[in-house]
Amino acid sequence: MPAIGAVRQVALSAGRDLDATLAFWQGVLGMKVHARYDPPGIAFILAGDVRLLFTDGVPAGTVYLDIAGLEAFHAEAKAAGVPFTAPPTLVHRDTDGRFGPARESEWMAFLKDPAGNTIGLVERLPSEPH
């Protein structure tokens, strides 16, 4: 069997205007462009150890990114006019600790970049007593 390792790279759509897409990722999400090659018109942003490749020729995708302070970020970004397609919402209670420390909950909010990629922002928080 091949020894498959971690995720190295994920391809997202650059959209019609790579500048606008990258400006969104930098301005709204605070993620810097790591490298850009023009031509052919591609760019990389690093999310932890994973490279996000922005290129045309791929459909708009979805990527889930960890964030600390999701609620505060949502409030601030919303006040600045960033349109969220969904506010912070409880998606899963990890009672057994299958995906991280037990008894944490996963909260997600969603927004779209100008290329139409969906960005899910994820934060794990201690669960409220049920």
Binding site: T89, L90, V91, R93, M108, F110, T118, G120, H130
Partner: peptide, 26 residues
């Protein structure tokens, strides 16, 4: 979550959480 939080897990919410587990925008 907002209903659970504000109204302390009211019985009229039923078991909606279980049906919603891992439901996201997609």
């Amino acid at each position: 979550a907002p209903i659970e939080g504000r109204y302390e897990f009211p019985h009229w919410l039923g078991d909606l959480y279980s049906a919603c587990d891992w439901t996201d925008e997609h």
